[in-house]
């Protein structure tokens, strides 16, 4: 069990290094996908099927969107030259991070040891108080629903931002007959010869 977890973690580390170092964008995206799927197996083995489901689904979505984005661009490889100053600086900061991480890890609790007593109450009384047998859902949508509405607001704001930035023309000017009409598609646009994907 522990050995299998270590092997998965090693695959994730190798995948991350390949994703950073490779010149081809498509293989970089696929390496990121390998890291994500290994992470979902790790979640499943640590007893968090909720997060494992979410991780798998989001990973598939991100892979689809990123592969579409990389295939459509003509320039799929990166020509870069290594900046020595940047490499030296990042190595120094990585060394500092390792020192402080070593100091911090010595103070941390045992793996799987609960830190807070609040979670004990959720586990003991969650099913009785909320009626939901999925404790994660009862925490998300009953005990901590106020936090969840914050997450929903973040998602909503990001969608609004994406629509505002990626649509070129405003909604009011959409009705003008214009060649460079871009943005929300209506029926006329769909009938026109945009071609398939």
């Amino acid at each position: 069990m522990e050995i299998f977890l270590l092997i998965l973690t090693l695959i994730m580390v190798i995948g991350s290094i390949i994703a950073i170092e490779t010149r081809n964008l498509l293989s970089s995206v696929i390496s990121v996908g390998v890291v994500g799927f290994c992470l979902s197996i790790v979640f499943l083995m640590l007893g968090a099927p909720d997060i494992a489901i979410t991780q798998v689904v989001v990973e598939i979505l991100i892979l689809v969107i990123l592969i579409r984005a990389t295939i459509t661009t003509d320039n799929t490889s990166i020509e870069k030259h290594k900046d020595t100053f940047a490499v030296v600086t990042s190595l120094i900061f990585f060394g500092l991070f390792l020192i402080f991480a070593f100091l911090a890890v010595q103070e941390i609790h045992q793996f799987g040891d609960p830190l807070m007593r609040v979670s004990q109450k959720y586990l003991a009384d969650g099913a009785k108080e909320t009626g939901a047998t999925n404790i994660v859902t009862s925490v998300l949508l009953d005990y901590r629903a106020y936090d969840t509405i914050g997450e929903a607001t973040v998602l909503f704001t990001s969608i609004v931002g994406a629509f505002v930035i990626l649509r070129r023309r405003g909604r009011k000017q959409r009705k003008e007959k214009d060649v460079e009409k871009v943005g929300i598609l209506d029926d006329e646009d769909i009938k026109k010869d945009f071609g398939g994907f």
Binding site: T54, L61, A132, T133, S138
Partner: peptide, 17 residues
């Protein structure tokens, strides 16, 4: 979502997929 693993977020992304 309140009985088995999953919930609104994961299910919504599956529908979107």
């Amino acid at each position: 979502g309140h009985l088995t693993p999953g919930g609104g977020f994961a299910g919504g992304i599956i529908l979107a997929c």
